[in-house]
């Protein structure tokens, strides 16, 4: 079957891409100046040698690479350098779900918000709702995320103290309340982008021939809107959703830092600052794979939704 062949081909390509990513990261990282084993307190030569042996850093780089690859094929990312008793696999398993939940929610907010606002602004083009929403959209696009995150937190604190109850938790993770504000902040930029996209694609369609025909045939507006305009306008939004999911899930550092959320992004930044080789490798390869397969998934999905797209 064509579809199966297409998926297989894409998957094989994906595996190769992941291998390339692993290789690139491995050598990029080992070329980073600095010494991952150093700590505040200096080590004697003897102790240092013991530590080096423990992590296999005493072997030549080529050997290390081969060992790494063979571990990778078994799905073993190794042991963290800074968190000595912790498997990188465990770290990913513990923290990725957090980032993923945050990301999924952010994408949902962005998609639902973007489609609704976009449709609304297109319907009321050049009138007050349009201007109002577009103003916020522009704000969402043009203010750096860390400023929005800090302001968001400030708003919660002041709101809570004004109300005298904890309506939304200020930071942390673990309940429904914890996820709402951070994911909204995280999804804001994407939502703004999607609103614009949705608006312009709605406008393009409203002046298209088939909508005109439908109007001429006297179809009820609600029906035209639902069957023709909205449905077709959503398609381009779905295409960008795939990359958006990946970008949001891998790009949540800022929100995770500001809201004290135990996600994988925070771990990565920490790991880079500590030159924690195995965690850096593990995170990058994992996210790389995630990204690659997400894109494949969306492509396949898109092919299924839109009959015009041929699987080639």
């Amino acid at each position: 079957m064509a579809i199966a062949a297409f998926i297989t081909k894409r998957l094989i390509q994906g595996v190769f891409t992941v291998w390339f990513i692993a290789t690139a990261t491995f050598f990029a990282m080992h070329n980073v100046p600095g010494d991952p084993l150093l700590n505040e307190r200096a080590m004697t030569e003897a102790i240092r040698a013991n530590v080096e042996a423990k992590y296999g850093l005493d072997k030549p780089l080529g050997t290390q690479y081969l060992i790494y690859l063979s571990n990778l094929t078994r799905g073993d990312f190794g042991i963290s350098f800074t968190q000595e008793n912790r498997q990188v696999n465990d770290i990913i398993r513990e923290h990725f779900p957090v980032s993923a939940i945050l990301g999924v929610l952010a994408v949902l907010f962005a998609a639902v918000g973007g489609i609704l606002w976009g449709a609304l602004t297109a319907l009321y083009r050049n009138r007050i709702p349009d201007y109002l929403i577009m103003f916020f959209v522009i704000l969402g696009i043009s203010v750096p995320s860390f400023v929005i995150a800090a302001l968001g937190q400030l708003v919660i604190v002041n709101m809570n103290s004004a109300l005298g109850i904890t309506l939304f938790p200020v930071a942390g993770w673990g309940t429904l309340g914890h996820m709402l504000v951070p994911s909204m902040v995280l999804g804001l930029g994407t939502m703004a982008y999607l609103t614009r996209l949705m608006r312009s694609s709605m406008l393009e369609i409203v002046s298209s021939d088939y909508v005109r025909t439908a109007k001429a045939k006297g179809l009820p507006p609600a029906r035209i809107f639902a069957k023709h305009q909205l449905r077709n306008a959503i398609l381009p939004v779905i295409t960008v959703l795939g990359p958006a999911i990946a970008a949001i899930t891998t790009g949540g550092f800022v929100v995770e830092l500001v809201f004290a959320i135990p996600g994988l992004g925070r771990y990565f930044v920490q790991a880079v600052q500590q030159l924690d080789y195995t965690v850096i490798m593990g995170t990058t390869v994992f996210y790389g794979a995630f990204l690659v397969f997400m894109v494949i998934f969306v492509d396949v999905l898109y092919g299924l939704i839109d009959p015009r797209v041929r699987m080639s």
Binding site: T17, A246, F253, T283, T284, Y287
Partner: peptide
């Protein structure tokens, strides 16, 4: 395609350090 597949921010940070 391979470059696109690199997790952008992660690699940005890595490169910057490297």
């Amino acid at each position: 395609d391979f470059i696109v597949a690199l997790p952008f921010l992660l690699f940005m940070i890595l490169f910057k350090i490297a």
